[in-house]
Amino acid sequence: MATIEIRRQHALTKDEAKKRAEDLARGMEDKLGIRWRWDGDLIRFDAPGGAAKGTTGLVRVEASAVQVEIDLPFLLKAMKGMVESKVNEKLEAVLSKA
């Protein structure tokens, strides 16, 4: 497994950060076929099929930061850099919106 860990600071309320994290999860559900669920302040996700098949991870929403951890399966290991870049872009866009 290739693991991606990203931590991004934000200036939002925790509730707003959770709302935006959920919006992002819904978008990934539509695009990549991931399944996700809330577990307290965590979104846990996995991809049972599709382009991201075998991927698992979580999004931890804190008062001033969001942390993303993604475990890529062996077949997607070569795409780690691209996936990490896309996640960074999405987090920047989602957490910096006014």
Rank of each mutant, 00 (worst) to 15 (best):
S85P: 08
V66N: 04
V87M: 04
G50K: 13
G81Y: 00
L76M: 12
P48N: 10
A17Q: 12
A65I: 03
E89Y: 01
A2L: 07
V94N: 11
A65E: 13
R26V: 15
S64I: 04
A25L: 12
R37N: 10
E69L: 02
L75A: 10
R44M: 05
V66S: 06
F45W: 12
F74Q: 08
D30M: 13
D15W: 05
E5M: 04
D46G: 05
M1F: 03
V87T: 11
E16G: 14
E29I: 08
I43M: 12
R60K: 14
I6P: 10
L91R: 08
D46P: 13
K80W: 03
K53I: 08
G33T: 02
E62W: 10
L76N: 08
G49I: 00
I34T: 04
A52S: 02
D15V: 04
D30V: 14
G49V: 00
E92M: 06
A98I: 07
A98F: 03
T3Q: 12
N88D: 02
R26G: 11
L42I: 01
A47I: 03
K97S: 14
E16M: 14
A2Q: 13
I70F: 00
E84Y: 00
H10M: 03
G40M: 02
T3K: 11
N88V: 05
K18W: 10
P48S: 11
L76Y: 02
E69R: 15
V59L: 13
K31W: 01
D46Y: 02
S85W: 00
M79G: 01
A2F: 01
L24W: 15
K14D: 10
G33M: 03
V61Q: 14
V68L: 07
A78C: 08
F74L: 03
L12K: 15
G40N: 15
R26T: 15
E16Y: 05
A93E: 15
K80D: 04
G40T: 12
G50Q: 08
K90A: 03
V66E: 10
A47W: 01
G54A: 02
T13M: 05
H10R: 04
L76K: 02
A47Q: 03
R20V: 15
T56G: 03
D46C: 06
S85L: 02
H10D: 06
E89I: 01
A2C: 09
M28K: 10
A52C: 01
L32R: 08
L32K: 09
K19F: 09
A25H: 03
L32W: 14
K53D: 01
M79K: 02
F45P: 14
